[in-house]
Write a protein that binds this DNA or RNA. Structure first.
Lengths: 164, 164
DNA sequence: GCCAAATAGGACCCAAAAGGTCTTGTTTCC
DNA sequence: GGAAACAAGACCTTTTGGGTCCTATTTGGC
């Protein structure tokens, strides 16, 4: 349905809560999975699963043992939304037969749209790379956002497309 | 998985084939569902289903009876990709709790990203509205594309994002 | 007037994927 | 040594999409 998984949505909420609680790199603060579950209203096993995936993606760091917990590895202003989506939903591609894939489609010889989806996928990727998780979580007004670090083209793009 | 349904993919192929066969408004030419199935390699019942949905969306017109068939109602250069996606996948929205939806999420009171997904969805919609079905089907080189009618910003956007 | 061809519309079944929960193991602090 | 918390994986349940089939209706040709 062109929807991303619920876990991705939960992940954004959890990440926002971690930053709100000050569980950032540098200081020693961490936040436990049960604590995040209580704060966000998401079931605790689900929060644990989300944090594990975020840890594997390098977005959070787990501290084991008593008084352990999780902390962010980067401020959310440096985390593009696409990175979270890729961690939970896999590579961003709208169709299977894209990005140079050769096998799998038995109508390849007569398919008139072969390879044509690539710009579409690139457009989606770009749009999602240009929005940081911080932009979803904190500010009250989108025009107050700091521009993301890698691509300064991101913001004008979003602004243009919103006016669709 | 941030994928659109296979039916949407089939729809683009079928639409492209219809235009290729000259089943356009104005002239009397139509193309039958079995004929399209043979030409595209897609199973005939599936093609029939795709055509029914396209007909309900106002993209193709069915002519009943013997020597009947389907024809396009608009040239594909006037059909934004988003229109096809909406017909098969429903409204383009990455999450459930967007666009002013109030009920359904029991953590609404404490959710820090409430309403924040809207610009993201708008960006995706805009990107998909700026690409026509004709752009996916016919040209050999993307820089030869005619600019879509409603929004001339579409092409620069895609070009920028491809360079991500 | 009858038959064949083709769309219209819906119901139905199957398979795959996602969501969520649980269990076990490991680490660290008190 | 015990408790608290993360780490990793297996498992089950539910939902959704994909695909097929059936019946009704319409129209052209004989």
């Amino acid at each position: 349905m062109l929807r991303l998984s619920k876990l991705t949505d939960y992940a954004v909420v959890v990440l926002a809560r971690l930053e709100q609680d000050g569980a950032l790199p540098g200081n020693g603060r961490v936040q436990t999975a049960p604590g995040l579950a209580a704060a966000t209203g998401i079931a605790e096993p689900t929060v644990a699963k989300v944090l594990k995936i975020l840890g594997a993606a390098g977005l959070v760091e787990g501290v084991r043992g008593a008084r352990g917990g999780y902390r962010l590895m980067r401020p959310l202003a440096d985390v593009p939304l696409s990175e979270v989506i890729v961690a939970f939903d896999g590579p961003i591609a709208l169709t299977a037969c894209v990005d140079g894939g050769v096998g799998g489609c038995d109508a390849e010889a007569i398919c008139p749209v072969r390879g044509r989806w690539d710009p579409v996928n690139a457009a989606i990727r770009g749009a999602l790379s240009g929005i940081t998780v911080a932009a979803l979580a904190q500010p009250r007004f989108p025009w107050d956002l700091p521009l993301p670090a890698p691509a300064n083209t991101a913001h004008p793009v979003a602004a243009t497309l919103v006016a669709e």
